[in-house]
Write a protein that binds this DNA or RNA. Structure first.
Length: 645
RNA sequence: GCCGAAGUAGCUCAGCUGGUAGAGCAGCUGAUUUGUAAUCAGCUGGUCGUAGGUUCGAUUCCUAUCUUCGGCUCCA
């Protein structure tokens, strides 16, 4: 075929001779566009400007833009090459492994002859800036797969990459030289890249860390250097500001500043909740309690330490052993529970259950302990001791769909109470390490799949990531900084009820095993607290704020009136304290603002005489004088439901 | 668990190549009695993560270990 037709973004169609390059098309549109262009897109494939357009289709010229993921992808990929070249220059003997762009920037995995640290960043960045200033072209060079293998011979990582590309079905292997092939630095790479290094206008190296070759723990340990690249300086600056903002919101920092919790060296991954943090924790728990009790859940309480025999029966001793804390009582080996499910089955098993009892929804704010690998802990987000807002729904197969649907509604509602939405739902299927027959897994996955369809849920497949007893849905929410958090989950389990002998008498007067749905909406209270601390940056909404009001007497002369205000508010159930310190009002206000207290009430001579208070709202400042009764109206609307739309 | 970095007063941090530690804030005491984001002065406070080792002498050098941080992996 001698011609190809391209559909441009404005839906106009352009017919060009076969073999026309992206650059030629750009030039035919405008010289300015051709100058700015960094790559072109045909369908869902992004290609170098210099490459002939391989076929007809949707066609788009990519120009640098912080809003265009395709543009950022190309810029970051090219920037990764420049980083790698700079490191090779500065650390001779460096062997390169893999350097892709990622959503948050790019990285390059490499093995350097000596360790690279943050101290080396300025030198690396300087060298990168030089390479960019030289404005050398990215030159693509394609060779046959045999030639590709020959060229990478002896280079463990690159050869492996080439082998993988060939296994994937690539017929040619491409290399990119930054400049002239054979003279300048080059790297095995599929591309695409910007036309030349000068297109990289704004970059920064962010961090260095270890990573495994192919993410395999048993394989080589590599050095991973993270960087970021944007279309322009403004984009880079705003991203750096974003990182600063995230740092300021870090729940570990705020937890200390706001006196919410701490973690001790002697109990890694276990949280000591201080009074203010414990309030937050209990408020969350009580909120969930209110929500689920209206939806037919029954709360139970079960032991935290259970004899090993139960864990053997349930399969935990076999499939979950390395995560369990083992303890001993005389000759008995016990384990601290990592999950509540076996205990809930034990409750279900008490007495004879009828089909009329189903669905039975047993809930527990059960404290679980999991001996997570050292090095995986992270503040409240990943701990070893935590409470789930857990429940197990015992039901029939016919009830799975409606229970899954109801739970989705519950998750949606409860996220909305905090201003969150479900960002996506992942569908995790059978893992390698599992109990139960494949037939049972087929059935469970099928049932969950049908239930999600019935609930109208779009899911993303997450193969091999299910629980060891059943497939699961994972509800992911996005916080105000756009970060994903996995919180809620529901899992379909045909296995544990069988293993632990749970039965009910059906309408046919026969005994049947119920299906068990494991589910949690917030996930762990600890993690959810961490997410909320970061989401609100410590500025908790009134209903959650550990201290809602602080009364600030102008001087000690008005401490009596301040105390009267405090006790009146306190009797109405408002969480209030008095700052009776011998400080000037400016200092007390500063303290109150720093402690992120929603309302500061200033009381001095004027207020004491007129029986009023001066209200100062967090962040908004002076609100003027009002009566106490009027002020207390604010708290009548102070419930999570006001967040729900 | 793996790679890299770090651990000094309640907090944030300084302390060059070895000679037993400093600042700011916080705390305490006193003065001041204050009107919308820091009043002043004085004082207290650390066996420098832990355990060994080298040395006349270790916060500093070495080894081990624990914890934290950044990642990998894993996950609620």
């Amino acid at each position: 075929m001698a011609e190809i037709s391209l559909t441009l973004p404005d839906q106009s169609v352009r017919v060009v001779p076969a073999g026309t390059t992206g650059r030629e098309v750009a030039e035919s549109i405008s010289q300015g566009l051709a100058r700015k262009a960094i790559a072109y897109k045909l369908g869902d494939k992004t290609l170098d400007m210099a490459l002939p357009i391989p076929a007809s289709g949707e066609f788009r010229i990519i120009t640098p833009s912080n809003e265009d993921p395709d543009a950022l992808y190309v810029l970051r990929h090219s920037c990764a090459h420049v980083l790698a070249e700079a490191v090779c220059d500065l650390f001779p003997g460096t062997r390169l492994a893999y350097g892709p762009p990622v959503e948050e920037g790019f990285y390059y995995d490499l093995a350097s002859p000596k360790p690279i640290s943050g101290d080396d960043f300025p030198a690396i960045e300087k060298r990168m800036a030089e390479i960019i200033k030289e404005n050398r072209p990215f030159t693509r060079c394609e060779v046959s797969s045999e030639e590709g293998l020959r060229r990478t011979e002896g280079d463990k990582y690159k050869n492996d990459n080439a082998v993988r590309a060939i296994t994937r079905g690539d017929s040619v292997i491409s290399f990119y030289a930054t400049g002239a092939p054979g003279t300048n630095w080059e790297d095995l790479c599929a591309g695409p890249h910007v036309p030349s290094t000068g297109y990289l206008k704004a970059f920064k190296i962010l961090s260095v860390a270890g990573a495994y070759w192919h993410g395999d723990q048993t394989s080589d340990q590599l050095t991973r250097i993270y960087g970021i690249c944007f279309a322009d300086k403004a984009g880079l600056e705003s991203h750096l500001t974003f990182l600063e903002e995230a740092k300021k919101r870090d729940h570990r920092r705020l937890g200390k500043e706001l006196d919410l919790f701490h973690i001790e060296d002697h109990s890694p991954g276990m949280v000591f909740w201080h009074p203010k943090g414990a309030h937050l924790y209990n408020a969350l728990r009580n909120h969930v309690r209110n929500v689920i009790s209206k939806r037919g859940y029954l709360e139970v309480i079960t032991p935290e330490i259970v004899d090993k025999s139960l864990w053997i029966k349930s399969g935990h001793a076999d499939k979950y052993n390395e995560n369990m804390f083992i303890t001993r009582s005389g000759d008995r080996e016990m384990a601290v529970k990592p999950m509540n499910c076996p205990c809930h089955i034990e409750i279900f098993n008490q007495g004879l259950k009828s089909w009329r009892d189903l669905p039975m929804r047993l809930a527990e704010f059960g404290k679980c302990h999991r001996n997570e690998l050292a090095g995986t802990m992270h503040g409240l987000m990943r701990v070893r001791g935590f409470v789930q807002d857990d429940a197990h729904i015992f039901c029939t197969e016919d009830q799975i769909a409606s229970e899954v649907r109801d739970f989705c509604t519950l998750v949606r509602d409860i996220y909305a109470d905090f201003g969150f939405q479900i960002a996506k739902v992942k569908f995790s299927t059978r893992p390698e390490k599992r109990i139960g027959s494949d037939e049972l897994w087929d059935k469970a996955e099928q049932a969950l799949s049908e239930a999600t369809a019935a609930a109208g849920l779009e899911t993303i497949l997450n193969p091999g990531e299910g629980a060891f007893y059943g497939p699961k849905l994972e509800f992911v929410l996005k916080d105000c900084l756009g970060r994903d958090w996995q919180c809620g989950t529901i899992q379909v389990d045909f296995n544990l009820p069988i293993r632990l002998g749970a039965t009910y008498v059906g309408q046919d007067n026969q005994k049947h095993h119920p299906v068990m749905l494991h589910r949690a909406a917030l996930g762990s209270i600890e993690r959810f607290c961490g997410i909320l601390i970061e989401e609100y940056a410590g500025d908790f909404p009134l209903w959650l704020a550990p201290t809602q009001v602080r009364v600030l007497p102008i001087s000690e002369k008005f401490s009596e009136y301040a105390e009267k205000v405090r006790s009146t508010l306190s009797e109405s159930g408002i969480r209030v304290e008095v700052d009776g310190s011998n400080e000037k009002i400016g200092y007390k206000i500063r303290q109150g603002e720093q402690h992120k207290i929603p309302y500061l009430l200033i009381v001095g001579e004027k207020e004491a005489q007129s029986e009023l208070i001066s209200v100062r709202k967090r962040k908004d400042g002076d609100q003027g004088q009002v009566s106490l009764d009027e002020f207390m109206n604010v708290f009548k609307l102070c419930t999570p439901d006001t967040n729900r739309s």
